[in-house]
Simulated scan of single mutants.
Amino acid sequence: MDDPTTLVSTDWLAAHMRDPDLRIIDASWYMASEGRDPKAEYDAAHIPGARFFDIDEISDARSSLPHMAPSTEKFMSRMRAMGVGDGHQVVVYDGEGVFSAPRVWWLFRLMGQMNVAVLDGGLKKWVAEGRAVEDLPPVIRDRHMMVRFQNQMVKDATQVAAASKLGTPQIVDARSAERFAGSAPEPREGLRAGHIPGSRNVPFKNLLNDDGTMKEPDALKAAFVDAGVDMDKPVITSCGSGITACILSLALERIGKNDHSVYDGSWTEWGAVPSMPIETGEA
């Protein structure tokens, strides 16, 4: 089920490594509590030719919220500096399997670039299979990128509040069941516990296999349906800070549902504003 616009296997990437217009991106990112340095790990070992995408730096520096989507100008500038542009087939991976790479997949699509896929299983699977890694910096050649911002793919708090009241689009939360229910504390200080009223819960781990790869489309669809998501209605995905919501968006795209968007501020924004209503308990 390799699809160069959503998800490709390690076998697919290995077969296309020498394609002149292939660009590989390491988009590893971790919670601060893990104490990991994704750039240092990239410098030590990455898939040959990969560029490093700094999710926190390639973001909207004017926002107080973490790693919000950057302006089109900043995205174009950073991609040109990385040698990524029009006509390239992009494959994004991360060190966990399928975790932060879908965020960068979504950012490319937000900017109108559709020839981008996530590497299923990521660096962990690539290394487990004994495939090559290197510590060399890539050779960069400038490439222009034309950006066409897709407004319908991102939602703000006002739009999400309206969806919460009206029941459409549906809001689907990727956080764990415990965080969604408000029975577990939030990892970021100052946030209330609970969820956006009316939202559904599809923990992102429910979409993944034990080896970090994404489940087959039938199982992905079942996860949403079992959570009470109406597949005939549009969806807004949400999470803690806009990272794992994009795993849900990738899964929806994999099952042919393309009327989805991401609440970029997610619970980091909603949970910090006292005037925003919250619910606790299961959906």
Rank of each mutant, 00 (worst) to 15 (best):
D11S: 11
L13P: 08
A15C: 05
R18T: 15
D21F: 10
D21M: 11
L22I: 12
R23M: 03
A27L: 03
S28Y: 05
Y30E: 05
A40Q: 14
A40G: 04
A40R: 15
H46P: 12
I47M: 04
P48M: 02
P48T: 12
P48E: 06
G49S: 08
F52Q: 01
D56A: 14
D56C: 05
A61R: 14
R62F: 01
R62P: 02
A69D: 07
A69K: 04
E73S: 14
E73C: 05
M79L: 15
A81M: 12
G87F: 10
G87L: 09
Q89Y: 07
G95W: 12
G95C: 09
R103V: 10
W105V: 00
R109L: 05
L110S: 02
G112E: 09
Q113I: 15
N115I: 09
L119C: 13
L119V: 11
G122T: 06
G130N: 10
A132D: 14
V133L: 08
E134S: 13
D135C: 13
L136Y: 07
P138G: 14
V139G: 06
I140L: 13
I140Q: 11
R141P: 00
R141S: 12
D142R: 13
R143E: 13
H144Q: 09
H144W: 08
M145F: 14
M146Q: 13
M153R: 15
V154G: 05
D156C: 03
T158G: 11
A162P: 04
A162I: 02
A162R: 12
P169N: 09
I171W: 07
A174I: 12
A181Y: 05
A181P: 07
G182F: 06
G182H: 00
S183N: 08
P187Q: 02
G190M: 09
H195L: 00
N201E: 04
P203K: 15
P203C: 13
N206C: 03
L208K: 01
T213F: 10
K215G: 11
K215M: 14
E216S: 01
P217N: 12
A222E: 15
D226M: 09
D226A: 15
D226F: 03
D226K: 13
V235N: 04
T237R: 01
C239I: 05
I243Y: 07
I243H: 04
T244M: 10
A245W: 04
C246M: 06
L248I: 00
L248H: 02
S249E: 04
A251M: 10
L252Y: 12
I255Y: 02
Y263G: 00
Y263V: 03
D264A: 00
W267A: 02
T268D: 10
G271S: 06
V273Y: 03
E279M: 04
T280Y: 04
G281T: 08
E282M: 15
A283W: 09
A283G: 08
